[in-house]
């Protein structure tokens, strides 16, 4: 069982969350020319890192907020959690 520290609600079990994928993916800026390759990278291509991975989760059975979680994909250890709009150094 993973335990995720929701920045809004505190420590909860993974059963309350649903996964949202790689949080480092950025949608292309819509007000400039976007190439097919840029869309390709945004929609399909993923680094799928082994080790520290910043990802989105939604506290779907709790506050329903989207959050960011820094988690190790080889040990499942969770290091830090952030609000969705928080800038991460």
């Amino acid at each position: 069982m993973l335990y995720i520290n929701c920045p809004h609600c505190g420590m909860r079990s993974q059963n309350e969350f649903s996964y949202g994928g790689d949080a480092s993916v950025k949608r292309p800026e819509l007000n400039k020319e976007i190439s097919d390759n840029e869309w390709d990278d945004f929609v399909y291509n993923r680094k799928s890192l082994r080790g520290k991975h910043l990802e989105l989760w939604q506290h779907i059975s709790g506050c329903r907020q989207w959050i960011k979680v820094e988690r190790d994909t080889s040990t499942h250890e969770i290091f830090r959690t952030f609000k969705a709009n928080e800038e991460i150094a």
Binding site: S13, R71, T73
Partner: peptide, 13 residues
Amino acid sequence: DGYNSYAQRGNLP
């Protein structure tokens, strides 16, 4: 299991 993983071992939920 529903999240990116290289762990080769699963979780009970």
